[in-house]
């Protein structure tokens, strides 16, 4: 147990600040925000993914890690700091942590139902960088006109996959892209064009 990394130094205030930053990102899709509570990443998780985990995950939220992010270090950290159940099947997860190696990216997760679209997963996706990738245009709630983003490493198939997924609205998953300490949200309500 002595190898487990520390969590938030000041849980109530740190998680409040982190949440407001995350809420700002959800309210402004495409906006890059920085989660700066001095956390190191755990295992293969970025500092931003680690911060996300510590602020929102607990024993009420089943978690799933893609095989390339899963490790004993991550599992011990999650058990010790959150008590969240780790599930084997992605469909059972409320929060899923994955990388762009997964293809198709969005298949297999809970998307909620027409009656309860909130019973859906949030996907935290590790990417190399939130800038410098192929230019995409976002439109929808939270965006005044349009937002231009360039998430590095996104496969060319993403736009078509997202657009098919968005046809299921109000069902769907919400995406959070993370790179280092930075984060960008892509809620299901947002239209993406290349």
């Amino acid at each position: 147990m002595s190898d487990i990394a520390l969590g938030l130094a000041d849980p109530a205030h740190d998680s409040q600040r982190l949440f407001r930053t995350l809420l700002d990102a959800f309210a402004h899709p495409g906006r890059i925000v920085s989660l700066t509570e001095g956390l190191a990443g755990v295992g293969s998780l970025s500092p931003a993914a680690t911060a996300f985990l510590l602020m929102l995950v607990d024993r009420d939220t089943p978690l799933w890690f893609s095989p390339d992010l899963d490790s004993p270090i991550v599992r011990d950290f999650v058990r010790f700091h959150t008590g969240a159940p780790l599930v084997a099947r992605e469909v059972d997860a409320q929060f899923a942590f994955l990388t762009l190696r997964r293809a198709p990216l969005l298949d297999g997760f809970a998307i909620g139902t027409d009656l309860y679209p909130d019973r859906s997963a949030t996907l935290v996706i590790e990417v190399p960088s939130l800038v410098g990738g192929p230019p995409l245009t976002l439109r929808g709630p939270g965006i005044e006109h349009q937002a231009c983003v360039g998430i590095a490493g996104l496969p060319a198939s993403f736009v078509a996959e997202w657009s098919a997924h968005r046809a299921l609205f109000p069902c769907g998953v919400d995406l959070v892209f993370v790179a280092g300490t930075e984060l960008m949200a892509l809620p299901r309500s947002i239209a993406v064009e290349s």
């Binding site: 998680s15 809420l23 602020m55 929102l56 607990d58 939220t61 679209p117 709630p141 919400d174 309500s189």
Partner: peptide, 19 residues
């Protein structure tokens, strides 16, 4: 308490995602 806040925070994010 922190657990209640986390639960409400998760609900707020869903609410923002499905206006």
């Amino acid at each position: 308490d922190e657990q209640t806040k986390r639960m409400i925070r998760r609900a707020i994010l869903k609410a923002v995602a499905v206006p």
